[in-house]
Amino acid sequence: MLDFFSEDVPWAEPLAEGAVILRRRARDEAAGLMTLVSEVSAQNPFHHRITPGGHRMSVAMTNCGNFGWSTDARGYQYSVQDSATGKRWPPMPERFRALAAACAAEAGFEHFQPDACLINRYEPGAKMSLHQDKDEEDLRQPIVSVSLGLPAVFQFGGFERGDAAQRVLLEHGDIVVWGGPSRLRFHGILPLKPGIHPATGAFRYNLTFRRAFR
């Protein structure tokens, strides 16, 4: 792992071993990222998924890449097509892939090549309960999570759901990378507070890059 206080990555803020926030890392290219989000969602519109337990998720989702993550009555899964439409997910923009690979490398995870990007859209009151990202084949690969738009409180906990969790504010352009010894930590987002952001209006967007399959 890199030295998080290295002058080479002056915006790095450590969370835990193997986990770091890259503050404002994507702010300068956020407008271009949001343009690509709009292009992806024009092909596969945001949709509130239903969990296996029958609950409607408060967060609206779309995906791009070779695989997409979704949930329905059958459970949580990665697939090459959207079960709701029967169509393949839109291709992942190269700009997305390059950003994820670069940020993973800055956090000490070289050669990360994501094959899935889950895009979450939060409106006021939307949240993401504490959970682990564990549906991927190779848990040696990190998670790269990009925040755009309204600020949100990120919870980063331990390895059991009931463990104490840090609460940190994520703002427009912040990127969180976690892997290695922190790969299976529970994490989530507290209910989004109302607001208007000049780049995204009344919403927060989160781009989560994963390597779903080896």
Rank of each mutant, 00 (worst) to 15 (best):
A84G: 01
G125D: 08
A73F: 02
F46G: 05
M92T: 11
L170F: 12
F109T: 02
D163V: 02
S83W: 06
M92Q: 09
V20T: 01
N120V: 09
G54Q: 11
M34Q: 10
A104R: 03
R25I: 00
R185V: 07
V177Y: 04
A100K: 04
G201V: 06
E29W: 03
V9Q: 01
C117I: 07
L130Y: 00
F186D: 02
P191S: 08
Y205N: 05
L148C: 07
T51L: 10
S38V: 07
A101C: 11
R95Q: 15
A98F: 10
E29Q: 15
P91G: 08
G179Y: 13
G125A: 07
D115C: 05
Y205Q: 04
E106C: 11
A60S: 14
S38P: 00
E39L: 13
P14D: 09
K193H: 10
R74N: 06
P124R: 14
A104G: 11
A19M: 08
S38N: 15
L130K: 11
H131G: 07
D133A: 14
T85R: 08
A126C: 12
L22N: 02
D72S: 14
A199R: 12
I175S: 01
E123D: 13
D28H: 08
A105H: 09
S6F: 00
V59P: 08
R211P: 03
P181F: 04
F4I: 10
E136S: 06
N44Q: 14
F154R: 01
H47A: 13
G86V: 08
I175Q: 00
G32T: 04
A12L: 02
T35D: 15
G18H: 09
L192C: 06
F96V: 02
H187A: 08
K127F: 15
F203E: 10
G179R: 09
R23G: 05
S83R: 12
Q155Y: 00
G180H: 04
G180N: 05
I143N: 02
S79E: 14
M61A: 09
R49C: 11
P181M: 03
R95P: 00
D8P: 01
V146N: 00
I189Y: 02
A31H: 14
R27W: 11
E17V: 12
A19P: 05
M57L: 15
E17Q: 13
W11V: 10
N63Q: 09
R88S: 15
L184D: 10
H47M: 10
A26E: 00
E29H: 11
G86C: 12
A42G: 12
E110G: 06
Q166D: 09
I50W: 01
A84K: 14
M57N: 07
L99K: 01
V168W: 04
P91Y: 11
E123M: 14
G32C: 04
R49P: 00
F4L: 09
A116G: 07
L150M: 08
A212L: 07
D8R: 15
Q141K: 13
F156K: 00
D133T: 10
W178L: 12
F96M: 00
R27G: 05
P191N: 11
A19W: 08
G173M: 01
Q43K: 15
A26H: 01
A16L: 11
R185F: 04
Q141Y: 04
H111V: 04
A73Y: 06
P45T: 01
L139I: 15
L118C: 05
P194R: 05
M34D: 06
V177D: 10
P90I: 06
G195V: 03
G75A: 08
P10C: 06
P52R: 03
H187N: 04
P198D: 04
A105E: 13
S79I: 02
